[in-house]
Amino acid sequence: MGETITFWVLAVVSVSAALGLVFSRKAVYCALMLGVVMLSLAVLYAVQDAPFLAAVQIIVYTGAVMMLFLFVLMLVGVDSSDSLVETIRGQRFWAVVAGLAFAALVALGVGNVVFAPAAGLGAVNAAGNVPSLAELIFTRYVFAFEVTSALLITAALGAMVLAHRERLEQKATQRELSRERFVKYGEEGLDPSPLPGPGTYARANAIDMPALLPDGKISKLSVNRYIARYEAEEGTIDPKVAEILEGEDK
């Protein structure tokens, strides 16, 4: 009874999330929808007496893999919507054909499957779900398990080799960096201290408000140029901040 209710509730949730994944135009939304699908799957596993699989599904897929996806999406900054312009000619037509063919193949394949009589959960889980799984993994399927882990390690090593860059010189320590700053100060007059912070006033307190120097002029160093330029582009720039951009090629 409980299982049936859970199934029908989760069916609605996961199918609508899957549809949302396909039709959403924002990459991050798609990733989130996929996360919802994975979570519903985990709950379904749990309901069907596979608690270990459920936990692993959440930890590995939702927790690690999806997080990595999101991480990359955010780092790359793919938050704009997809464009619907076809870049390859006839792409949609062939995609539909390939999709239908694949569906037919899967339907035929699944339709011809012959099932042996099920062993029954009670018999399989006789020693408990986790111990029985452990026993199978570490006895009968230990080779497959080890091969998979070797594959994963190879992949991780490969990624590391591809991303690795040999350091040609020693990384500058804080002592060396500080010394360099003072040498620059002595030679070129560059201030060794950090940049001045933005202004804090009674009515305004934000990173785009410039600080004032003792003579009442604004300190050009106190506002980030990137922010000033952005505000100039948006047309929301404060006239005081605009002075910062004067005498600079845009």
Partner: peptide, 14 residues
């Protein structure tokens, strides 16, 4: 549950 500690880990990862 038989995997209660894993459940806690799963929750923290969500």
């Amino acid at each position: 549950m038989p995997v209660a500690v894993l459940f806690i880990l799963a929750m923290s990862s969500i």
